[in-house]
């Protein structure tokens, strides 16, 4: 089953102050089947992150369609979905992992992961248990669970982000360089997790620099600079 189809996606940014149009990605076409993992590679600045942000509606698409097959709404074009539909999908169906952490003040690492579950109505005890399991899985030191994450290292933040996103088991995951600041051991954990998610039919698009990492998880690799699928 096709879960996502990107048709002719183009994104330009118009900066009023500079009076300039910045062209990011253009004429992107590909399809993602359920349970598939597509890796995106390409030069820095080629527009890789832009594609994921257009899918997530963090960026407004300039041209083209992003057809997503939702469990709640059926097929819909994410470039035209309502704001409330997008908010719903972000909570229940689409997970986005970036390198940056967006947490509330005075919210501990554990609470941050729990919040993703509480927002979708998971009972508190269950949420706490699942959050702990997820933090444990990503080997975030237990000493850190009850701390505020603004002091965390890059790798710790990333693992927290991954735990926060994966704890709700989204059916479509968007991963923007999810291993960029991790050591090899943690990278392998992330890889194992991604393989497990894939076995559970989670569909994923990931941006990676590390070709070795992609080996064994990516079904297809999309080279954005050349615009083709390998």
């Amino acid at each position: 089953m096709e879960i996502l189809r990107i048709e002719d996606l183009t994104k330009n940014f118009y900066l009023h102050n500079a009076g300039k149009e910045i062209k990011s990605c253009h004429d992107i076409d590909f399809t993602l089947e359920e349970g598939q993992f597509i890796g995106i590679v390409g030069l820095s600045g080629a527009g890789k992150s832009t594609i994921l942000k257009c899918i997530n509606r963090t960026y407004l698409t300039t041209q083209g369609n992003i057809i997503y097959n939702s469990s709640a709404f059926g097929k819909l074009d994410l470039t035209k979905a309502s704001e409330r539909e997008m908010l719903y999908l972000r909570k229940y169906e689409i997970g986005y992992v970036s390198q940056f952490l967006n947490v509330m003040p005075r919210t501990t690492a554990k609470e941050h992961v729990m919040n993703a579950l509480l927002e979708i109505g998971t009972p508190k005890e269950q949420a706490e248990k699942d959050a702990k399991d997820m933090l444990f899985y990503f080997r975030l030191a237990e000493d850190l669970w009850d701390l505020y994450p603004n002091t965390f290292s890059g790798g710790e933040r990333l693992r927290l982000n991954l735990a926060h996103t994966m704890v709700t088991h989204p059916r479509l995951m968007l991963l923007d360089e999810p291993t960029a600041s991790l050591d090899n051991k943690t990278k392998m954990l992330v890889k194992d997790m991604l393989i497990k998610l894939k076995d559970k039919k989670t569909s994923m698009i990931g941006i990676f620099h590390d070709l070795e990492f992609m080996d064994g998880i990516c079904d297809k690799v999309f080279n954005i600079s050349e615009g083709n699928m390998i």
Binding site: H16, R57, T58, Y59, L60, E83, L87
Partner: peptide, 13 residues
């Protein structure tokens, strides 16, 4: 718009 969209891809000058 969605808050992150307004902050990351604002349209109006």
């Amino acid at each position: 718009g969605l808050t992150d969209q307004i902050l990351e891809d604002p349209q109006h000058a």
